[in-house]
């Protein structure tokens, strides 16, 4: 009796993967956005400053590095970003008065970031929906490990168009 019921349940067993249908993508970019990680877009090396850096030093570094954004980092943890927009809105007319102040006074604190394991689509989402041009990338311990820049995103898009 026991043997019979065992046989019966074995015969009725269905492999759940029998019904699995692989995800279908419209094109190579669609696949890349869904499957490739942020690490495929992020820029390396990236530029960081400490919260104690003065505004003048930060602007000098931005110009030297020819970058539009610096990450403000303490013990490798992200505390803010300083971008061209911060300079426009908070520094450009007031530079002489505040140039020796720490960068924390004018930086964007609590910036939106993505994790290194996120899909590249998430970085694009931050840019398209939230409107940020530079998106910091952090690892699971919140250590800074890169930045997604507009130039890299444009290159990523054209790279996958060309790959079609």
């Amino acid at each position: 009796m026991t043997d019979k019921s065992t046989h019966s349940s074995f015969d009725e067993y269905q492999d759940p993967l029998d019904n699995y249908e692989p995800v279908k993508y419209d094109d190579a970019l669609h696949r890349a956005l869904a499957e490739e990680k942020v690490s495929a877009i992020e820029s390396q090396p990236f530029s960081c400053i400490t919260p104690e850096t003065t505004i003048q030093e930060a602007v000098e570094k931005l110009n030297q590095m020819k970058k539009g954004c610096l990450m403000v980092v303490r013990d490798q943890k992200l505390v803010g970003v300083l971008s061209d927009r911060d300079l426009l809105m908070k520094v450009s007319l007031e530079f002489d008065e505040i140039k020796n102040e720490p960068v924390t006074k004018v930086m964007t604190d609590s910036p939106i970031y993505v994790k290194i394991g996120d899909s590249s689509a998430k970085a694009l989402s931050v840019m398209a929906v939230a409107g940020y041009r530079h998106v910091p990338v952090v690892d699971e311990e919140m250590n800074v490990c890169g930045i997604v820049s507009p130039q890299r995103v444009t290159a990523f898009l054209t790279e996958h168009f060309d790959g079609q």
Partner: peptide, 14 residues
């Protein structure tokens, strides 16, 4: 571009 891939881009938690 995001409009073209709403299921992979627009649904991402920001």
């Amino acid at each position: 571009i995001a409009e073209h891939y709403p299921r992979v881009v627009m649904v991402q938690r920001i």
